[in-house]
Design a protein around this nucleic acid. Sequence first.
DNA 1: TCAAACCAAAGTGTTGACAGTTGACATAAG
DNA 2: CTTATGTCAACTGTCAACACTTTGGTTTGA
Lengths: 246, 246
Amino acid sequence: MSADDTPSMPTVAALKAHSLTAVVQHEIERMILSGELGPGERLNEKLLADKLAVSRGPVREACRALAELGFVHLIPNRGVFIRKLTRADAIEVYDLRAGLTGLAASLLAPLLTAEHMARLEGFVEEMEQAAETADFGRFYPLNLEFHDYIVRSTGNGRLLKLYRGLVKEFHLFRTHGLVQRNALLESNKEHRDIVAALKAKDGSLSYGRAFHHVANGKQRMLRALDDLAEAVPERQRKKPEMRLIE
Amino acid sequence: MSADDTPSMPTVAALKAHSLTAVVQHEIERMILSGELGPGERLNEKLLADKLAVSRGPVREACRALAELGFVHLIPNRGVFIRKLTRADAIEVYDLRAGLTGLAASLLAPLLTAEHMARLEGFVEEMEQAAETADFGRFYPLNLEFHDYIVRSTGNGRLLKLYRGLVKEFHLFRTHGLVQRNALLESNKEHRDIVAALKAKDGSLSYGRAFHHVANGKQRMLRALDDLAEAVPERQRKKPEMRLIE
DNA sequence: TCAAACCAAAGTGTTGACAGTTGACATAAG
DNA sequence: CTTATGTCAACTGTCAACACTTTGGTTTGA
């Protein structure tokens, strides 16, 4: 069973073992994801080092790793900047997520065990309850875990790493929360269809359904984004680039 | 036209602009890809710093970036080690490459322009000539460029970055070169099929053909690997983990 | 003879300081 | 009033030195 990895968040375990650099990296990630550091903002190495009570070395190393991860942008002699995310970026991330999600489903299909099925159907069941009561706060983490479970069940570590990186980047948009109540049921029906395709061990069908599930999410987001843009006239927005939502 | 990016190698431009860290990073990458640094080998920070006539700072930063890229493995207080690649790793990389290649094809299909078609057919034509004369040295870079062109023509920068990273990692295996002569023609026929699917603007078909093209490559590699393993008895191999080929 | 504890050398983790570059502000000319 | 220029503060890039951890060999004891 290669399905019992870390359950989506490797938070605590690697704090004592890893070096300062790793701690700093996770702290910066947290700051970005929590919104403490806004998009486009430049982060001062010295200030950050003092704030975390470390030297500039680990901070710089962490920034290099984050840059390779795509969270920040490095400009020589200027510093590191929190990546600005445009509408085009959102589309890119969604397209990639769709592709990886579909790939994971198609890879898992032939490997599917009874335990996999039990877990997957359990997720769908729970999500159904959450959707019926419009309990978004419960639906959302279940949804994340459902997809993460599929991906890590493939046993492909690289796929899992890429997928999780994309999910993190996706969170950077703060686009979640703009989903309508009725969309939950719709979304979960797609989950059910994916599980059915997996159960049939049909790789191709699994790919298609998983792909389109994410693609539908993309469309929903784009529509919501356009509505938002229409409601708020161009010049009233705080910044020219998109600060998608909060 | 988003197809005229850097033609696969961003070599010269970013040498003066980028800092020492970037130079060191590329140098280490080169060392790994060229085989100067074998798998599992530990690289000494001080020695490397002296060899490149820089301090340990840039070397360490470069290593952190390479670790996030997946080229090396970091063990606290032990150092950085060139990643050992097992058969399972090879399978992972191939599966991912298949997925990304298929995704790129399916994304490109609806966007395909006449210029795209001309370029793609040009590649296939050239590869056909190279395959007929069994000119592997000419076929190989054309094959790389053909696939890279498809991916970057999608305009999805993240997809392109991930894909190129995978290709680099793939080169780390040194698996190329084990292809049979007649496999070239077979491979190029698949190329032709992909182009035909793209021309029909059939995203789903394009995905399938591109995916299976890489999946076939994976099977060819695995077979060649098994043959190799049979020819060389277990205990005669230098190391327990695979050093796939050279 | 073997095993466990100890010791020393090597190497990484971290730090603080110095040098070079950048961007902005203030000043002066058109 | 606008535009060009010189100066300066802030910050990044880089480096050399110090502290701690690991590792392999050596010694000591059973």
